[in-house]
């Protein structure tokens, strides 16, 4: 049981290496089913349950909760429980579901709290000229945040069984898990700001507003924004080069003025 639990955890850890191998989909349930089947000594059931769970997870899956559970832990523990309890994939998923939901909180917390440590350490290394340090932070950060916790959580969950993990999940206040999801929605604003601050100046700021307005009001997808942006760039710098110096005046004719605050 202990050895099986460790092996289940190792499978969970190893399939996360797919993110270092080209995001090759090795962590999808259809693949993890095979690995868990091998570890648990029932390959055929593993493959069938894995394929069933693959179909469950193929779209956006929300089985009774607000947020979809982690596909990797859900698929792995679902298959493992299906074999260990001898019940079908659907029953196994209801056993695995609390842990997969719990893992979503763990994953959010790791990405939000632990990963920034590696990101900023990497910034510091680059500033010192230690490029190897940055390389280490990239790989180590991925391992500590994505691979290691899945080993720990999957081993533990399989060893302790669902009731214990369910109790842990219920002990976490809802505002903490919701708060992490909400913060995850804010934080891309920081990356966008850092990127924009490298390019933007008074003369070109209007194009940021234009891109925002076209997307927010008209719902134009990114490729459409890029086509319009490319046309504008050509108009401004090739067709009508003289206009570049007076770019800000463009807004007085357009309707994006009211967005500019």
């Amino acid at each position: 049981m202990l050895i099986q639990a460790i092996l289940v955890g190792l499978v969970a850890m190893c399939v996360t290496f797919e993110w270092a191998l080209g995001t090759c989909l090795a962590s999808r349930p259809i693949v993890t089913g095979v690995l868990i089947g091998l570890v648990m000594g029932d390959l055929e059931t593993g493959i069938i349950v894995g394929a069933t769970l693959e179909m469950v997870f193929i779209g956006s899956v929300t089985i009774g909760a607000a947020v979809p559970p982690d596909v990797i832990t859900g698929g792995i523990l679902g298959t493992a429980f299906a074999i260990s309890t001898g019940q079908g994939a659907e029953v196994a998923l209801t056993l695995a579901f609390p842990i997969a939901s719990l893992y979503l909180i763990v994953d959010n917390a790791m990405t939000l709290v632990v990963m920034p440590f590696f990101v900023h350490k990497a910034d510091a290394y680059v500033a010192q000229g230690n490029l190897e340090g940055m390389e280490r932070m990239h790989l180590l950060g991925g391992f500590v945040v994505k691979s290691l916790p899945r080993f720990v959580v999957c081993s533990l969950a399989f060893y302790l069984g669902t009731p214990v993990m369910n109790a842990v999940l219920e002990a976490i206040p809802e505002f903490v898990s919701n708060g992490l999801v909400v913060a995850g929605g804010f934080i891309p604003a920081l990356g966008i700001s850092l990127l924009a601050s490298m390019i933007i100046n008074k003369q070109t700021a209007v194009f940021f507003v234009l891109g925002f307005a076209l997307c927010a009001y008209l719902g134009i997808p990114m490729l459409g924004i890029a086509v319009i942006g490319a046309c504008l760039a050509v108009i401004l710098v090739v067709v009508q080069p003289g206009i570049v110096a007076q770019t800000p005046q463009l807004t007085s004719e357009g309707s994006f003025d009211d967005d500019d605050f």
Binding site: I199, F208, G229, V234, L236
Partner: peptide, 13 residues
């Protein structure tokens, strides 16, 4: 200049 125009529109979106 052209790259900045295009880049910022995409960043805005």
């Amino acid at each position: 200049m052209g790259a900045a125009v295009l880049g910022l529109m995409v960043i805005g979106a």
